[in-house]
Amino acid sequence: MRCPFCAHENSQVKDSRPTEDGTAIRRRRQCEQCAARFTTFERIQLRDIVVVKSADRREAFDRNKLELSVSLACRKRDVSQEKITQLVSGIQRQIETSGENEVPSQRIGELVMDGLRQLDSVAYIRFASVYRDFSEARDFEEFASNVKDVGKR
């Protein structure tokens, strides 16, 4: 594993353990050259997924990008990082087990919306405002009026 600090090719694993949700292995590493420590995560990848975006553009599925989007929607909400990771892992699993190598970005957006609807109503509305491209306050009002509060997690 390449060191993120000095780009040296070799590092030594100091500690390995499964993540709390059991979907990855967390490894603490130390660079053999500069002795810096960093963490890596090893996850199962069933297949290479390509996301089909607007205007037929294609890009590789990026779990980190998905997790960042969900985290932004949940920012300053009472949603733990563990819940966010579980949601993202579930979405990734659904995508990978669908049997398709190409997934429309709209499908991923709908999966996120379904998950956030169950997790936190405010995060759901936040994500929807970007995903559905709300342009006026009345767009929020109309959408929010149809959202029922989610019970405590």
Rank of each mutant, 00 (worst) to 15 (best):
R2T: 04
C3P: 15
P4K: 07
P4Y: 00
C6W: 06
A7M: 11
A7G: 05
E9P: 11
N10A: 14
V13Q: 14
V13P: 15
V13D: 15
K14M: 12
D15V: 01
R17G: 13
R17T: 04
R17E: 03
P18G: 01
E20C: 06
E20K: 15
A24Q: 08
I25T: 12
I25C: 12
R29W: 01
Q30M: 13
Q30S: 12
C31V: 05
E32N: 15
E32V: 09
A35S: 15
A36E: 10
R37M: 10
R37D: 05
F38K: 10
F38E: 00
T40P: 15
F41N: 04
F41S: 07
E42L: 08
E42I: 03
R43M: 08
I44Y: 13
I44T: 13
D48V: 08
D48F: 09
I49H: 12
V50I: 13
S54Q: 13
S54I: 08
D56S: 12
D56H: 07
R57V: 00
R57N: 08
R57K: 08
R58I: 02
E59V: 02
E59I: 04
F61I: 03
D62R: 09
R63N: 04
N64T: 12
K65D: 00
L66P: 06
L68C: 07
S69G: 15
S69K: 11
S71A: 14
L72A: 13
L72V: 10
A73N: 03
C74P: 10
R75T: 05
R75Y: 05
R75D: 06
K76L: 06
R77I: 03
V79I: 02
S80Y: 00
S80R: 01
Q81L: 10
K83R: 15
K83D: 07
T85I: 09
Q86K: 13
V88Q: 11
G90I: 00
G90Y: 04
Q94E: 09
G99Y: 02
E100V: 05
E102V: 02
E102K: 07
V103F: 08
S105L: 10
Q106M: 05
Q106F: 00
R107F: 00
I108P: 13
I108G: 01
I108Y: 03
I108S: 01
L111C: 03
L111D: 00
L111P: 13
M113D: 00
M113G: 01
D114G: 02
G115C: 05
L116T: 03
R117L: 14
R117I: 02
R117H: 15
Q118A: 15
D120F: 02
A123R: 08
Y124E: 05
Y124V: 06
I125V: 15
R126S: 11
A128N: 14
A128E: 06
A128W: 04
V130L: 11
Y131M: 09
Y131F: 11
R132C: 09
R132V: 03
D133G: 04
F134D: 00
S135F: 05
A137D: 13
A137I: 11
D139A: 05
E141C: 11
E141M: 09
E142T: 10
A144Q: 10
A144M: 11
S145C: 09
V147M: 10
D149S: 12
V150Q: 14
K152I: 09
R153I: 05
R153N: 10
R153V: 04
